[in-house]
Design a protein around this nucleic acid. Sequence first.
DNA 1: ACAAAAGTGTTATTAGTACACCCATGC
DNA 2: GCATGGGTGTACTAATAACACTTTTGT
Lengths: 240, 240
Amino acid sequence: MSKKKSFFDNNLYADSQPHLMFTAVDCIIFGFDGDDLKLLIMKRKMEPLRGEWSLIGSIIRLEETVEEAATRILNEATGLSDLYLEQSKVYSEVDRDLGYRCMSVAMYTLIRSDKFHLVSEQNQYDSHWHGLEDLPNLVLDHKRMVLDAMVKLRSKVKYHPIGFELLPEKFTIPQLQKLYEVILDEELDSRNFRKKMLSLGILQQLSEKDKSGSKKGAYLYQFNHEAYHKLVSSGFNFGV
Amino acid sequence: MSKKKSFFDNNLYADSQPHLMFTAVDCIIFGFDGDDLKLLIMKRKMEPLRGEWSLIGSIIRLEETVEEAATRILNEATGLSDLYLEQSKVYSEVDRDLGYRCMSVAMYTLIRSDKFHLVSEQNQYDSHWHGLEDLPNLVLDHKRMVLDAMVKLRSKVKYHPIGFELLPEKFTIPQLQKLYEVILDEELDSRNFRKKMLSLGILQQLSEKDKSGSKKGAYLYQFNHEAYHKLVSSGFNFGV
DNA sequence: ACAAAAGTGTTATTAGTACACCCATGC
DNA sequence: GCATGGGTGTACTAATAACACTTTTGT
């Protein structure tokens, strides 16, 4: 201990004794199954609160950033990598965890609907998709984290094209509209929605049709990243 | 050490050895002097990097939240309390600090222009106001923190009435316009600006005038909190 | 033939933008 | 009386909101 003590002399940390303060990351994992927004949660396997529903999270290791920690546990819990990842908020109430001090960085992430059913529900976390409407109680302040992340997702989706992160590479306009409707929790007029989306010039129509939703079939589109970047760099603000 | 070891057995933290990871808070302190946006920074007094320009920050103590830590150092550095405070972002690059692991929660805060000159520049931090245009180099990743916070301030000010946090209780429309102009870094048309602001019905005109800016004098207004809350709860989105 | 979802246009309303002159006052 | 910043109105344009029918095709 005396070796460590010298570390704290004569520098910025001189008045901070070494203490047990952990920092964790908790992931709010949104997924879209084509009809509803879902959340990937798990039954906590460790004490305390074993068996209670919980977000998927981890203590941040000494050698990783918040984003790397989130990427690690997302990969462990879903098998996926390269997920869209966004900081939501830091939760640091002194007594938010049980018995020791642990602050948590909440991150939210989006799972594409074509990967939705590929997310293994039998991994080390024993994770499960749950509808956002009838979410069970979650441990600690995790319910609050979900609600806060939901608000951020709602406002972000209006001005940034992150909705596309929840859809497969190729998608139809009705699918896109359904997604916006469940995120924003309001019905949208299909004519105005289509007009607005197409007018932005960031969707590329393909010749293929998707017939899973109707007899007639709906044209597939692709999100055009270059057109989008041109749009934002010319000062435009994507909006629904 | 063996006493501590038992703490880590049989719980969520079992695979996390006790390690030296600090969490700090750094404050991006914006102030408005009536003409320009300024930032309150200090010359670092401790090693390493003594004498370099730095944001005002501190290690978070075991008994305080991020917000409480920020409030504490803001009070130490400005003498003010009850400041508008907002989380900006967590910075957690493994090597962002020198020699040890320290992640930092960046918070931004707004100082009202009538308090601007009251902020003591001879406190334990030896803080100074600096124009945002010709900001000197700052230690570590603090420059990045400022730029990120500036982006957040810009987008926030368009849809939330936080601009009023930078003005005194009573202010004139030209003062408000000037503030928006320096935050958004663009000139605004005074007729359209006035029309838009007054149409929201959240400004209350007083009979007094402020003659500091002109011979004629400009009417003073007050921000009407109740009217604002009525507006947002009726689904409206404040915007400039 | 019919059910079910995809696709299409027009009009009305509202919000935003551009723009130029008179007013009140202190000096 | 003039310089300085404060205050006002109107016309044009763009965006948004409301609204109903036809098309395609599998069954």
